[in-house]
Design a protein around this nucleic acid. Structure first.
Length: 568
RNA sequence: CGGGGCGUGGCGCAGCCCGGUUAGCGCGCCUGCUUUGGGAGCAGGAAGUCGGAGGUUCAAAUCCUCUCGCCCCGACCA
């Protein structure tokens, strides 16, 4: 491609609305433009990279025997009502209505649609297992789009769905998919890590996410030297018990006017946060549940939901809190809290003389002792694990890092096949629900992740496999006939060798062209200038390393083709 | 949804508090000449209903009301 004819609108300055490196660079290097919040147009350079990532994904998916299909973005509400997700998925499900008032969803994921296809076409165990995938635009009405294409409302995803007669078969495909993902991310030159994950709105029994290590990532990952790795939602771990070692004192109320938060109460009473216990009222399947956790810790709602055997737990509304505790928000406590289930985190059990809400406005209770002054219905692990806690496997100290979640695999089991009555006839002649797995991979998000890991102060430094072009030919001065002729010739020769080359033939000053070359970041830059021509050479420079070499003009196309081959 | 911030030529911003000629600056863009190895120089030029609507006023980018959009933080952690 000749730059003079290309749409590559670069910017010198960072866009005002971008925060992260990848977002800024994707705008500055002319990969994409925002249309509206969380929605982007991909310009030629951006689209070329997306297609290269897609190609890698396709190759690796096809290699596993998965079959590519293409499902609609638009799906009728009835399908979502069959599985209950019309209600459960929440505001994130992008709903639209047709002229006749019928409800539809713009697909955020396609379990319902694919299961509908399969239940209509599959009869026998003999047809199993198989794996269907698509690469498609997804819609999620995100509460807050962020970081450019990392959290967008419209984005591209590869989603695969596998169907099985038994768990063993599912396990096998799940493993194969995880392996395929490793190959995909290896080929994208990403530093990543598969971690155990919670199942969330998709559901299912077992899940892994692939995390690309990045400080700008939205996910917190808990890791241990022993190999344990899980998202913070999922992570287990032992919280070091904290006890004052004091003799149990006499429980008594204290006035805490307007002190609603742990911080406020802690400061007001001069007591460290860990000696408080917070009581959070949740609504679980329509009933209120009080959850206790040590004051210096947070509740993990995902683990809470699992502990209660419920799919969705949400913090109760102020009205429900007042009704169940008799106090306004901020003063709930377990003492004398009747008629409501109380779940306490293990961290609460060994404590004594703790401070809790008094179930009365502006009152807290002190010297409260679990077991003496109240008895929870159960002690469970519902705490959000963090760095420094003990590893659930080896007991060693847990560490944490930030990551961008580029893919997630789930063992769905029969969650969708049962609710949608998708069955097959097994060998014994009985109808059984299909066992399913699903495997998502964020394509556009992966592009952002690649840029997060491959850039420097001058711009993007693409890995070759996903670079929009492998080589940029930079003609220093196109007014020089020698330079123009040589660069033209080189460009043609490389094109003839089917090397994708970007040829900066613009009549711009050298400075502009060098800066732009660094910004858009093709892996190899070939500089053609009078200076080199005098010496009978062109210059090759590797973008990622800055490594430079001189290539004799004689035989340069072949030599350059060779260099391109060796690039990472 | 709550809080905060921002909307001024294509991009990045100033001006607004304290209303008053033709609304500025940098970059970019167009024309010409010069220049050509790390964001060139000179000269000339085009381009903005100051997000939108309403109001106050002799007069509004500037003050008031409403509204739309974008960004950030938070979203029931008691």
């Amino acid at each position: 491609m000749r730059w003079s004819k290309a749409l590559i609108p670069t910017h010198k300055e960072d866009p005002s609305d971008a925060e992260t490196t990848s977002h800024k660079l994707m705008i500055r290097a002319g990969l994409m433009r925002k249309l509206t919040s969380g929605v982007y147009s991909y310009l030629p350079l951006g689209w070329r990279t997306i297609r290269k990532v897609e190609t890698i994904v396709r190759e690796e998916m096809d290699h596993t025997g998965a079959q590519e299909i293409h499902m609609p973005v638009l799906s009728p509400a009835e399908l979502w009502k069959e599985t209950g997700r019309w209600d459960v998925y929440g505001a994130e499900l992008w709903r639209v209505r047709d002229r006749n008032g019928r409800d539809f969803a713009l697909g955020p994921t396609h379990e319902e649609v694919v299961t509908d296809i399969v239940r209509n076409e599959i009869r026998s165990y003999r047809e199993l297992p198989f794996n269907l995938y698509q690469i498609q635009t997804k819609f999620r009405d995100e509460i807050r789009p962020r970081f450019g294409v990392v959290r967008a409302r419209e984005f591209m995803m590869k989603d695969a769905y596998s169907f099985h007669r038994d768990e063993d078969s599912l396990d096998e495909t799940y493993r194969i998919m995880c392996d395929a993902y490793s190959r995909i991310f290896d080929r994208c030159s990403l530093t990543y890590r598969p971690v155990e994950a919670a199942t969330g709105a998709i559901g299912g029994s077992h899940s892994h996410e692939f995390m690309v290590l990045s400080d700008t990532g939205e996910s917190e990952v808990i890791v241990c030297d022993c190999g344990y790795a899980a998202t913070d939602e999922r992570a287990e771990g032992k919280v070091a018990p904290m006890t004052s070692g004091e003799e149990p004192g006499e429980m008594k109320p204290v006035d805490t006017p307007g002190m609603k938060t742990i911080e406020e109460v802690s400061e007001f009473l001069g007591v460290e946060p860990w000696r408080l216990v917070k009581t959070i009222v949740y609504e679980v399947d329509g009933r209120p549940v009080a959850v206790l956790v040590r004051g210096d810790r947070e509740i993990n709602e995902s683990k809470l939901a699992a502990a209660l055997g419920s799919e969705v737990v949400e913090p109760a509304s102020p009205e429900v809190i007042e009704r169940t505790t008799g106090a306004p928000v901020g003063f709930a406590g377990p003492v004398g809290l009747d008629g409501i289930e109380i779940i306490a985190d293990h961290s609460v059990e060994p404590m004594a003389n703790i401070v809790v809400g008094g179930n009365r406005a502006d009152v807290h209770m002190t010297n409260v002792c679990p077991g003496r002054d109240f008895e929870p219905n159960a002690y469970r692990d519902v705490v959000l694990v963090r760095r420094g806690d003990a590893c659930p496997r080896c007991g060693g100290p847990l560490d944490s890092f930030r990551g961008i979640e580029v893919s997630q695999a789930f063992k769905l089991g029969t969650k969708y096949s049962e609710s949608m009555n998708a069955t097959f006839l097994d060998e014994d002649g009985t109808a059984k629900p299909l066992i399913m797995g699903c495997y998502g991979l964020g394509v556009t998000r992966t592009v952002a992740a690649i840029i997060e890991q491959h850039n420097d102060e001058n711009g993007i430094a693409w890995p070759k496999a996903v670079a929009p072009y492998s080589v940029e030919i930079l003609a220093v001065n196109v007014k020089s006939e020698d330079v123009r002729n040589l660069a033209d010739w080189l460009y043609r020769e490389l094109c003839d060798r089917r090397i994708d080359a970007l040829y900066d033939d613009r009549n711009e000053s050298p400075g502009v062209k060098f800066k732009d070359a660094d910004l858009v970041g093709m892996p190899l830059r070939i500089t053609v200038g009078d200076r080199g021509i005098k010496k009978g050479i062109v210059e090759a420079r590797v973008r990622a390393t800055g490594e430079e070499s001189e290539v004799p003009i004689e035989g340069a196309p072949d030599r350059i083709a060779k260099i391109v081959e060796t690039l990472p």
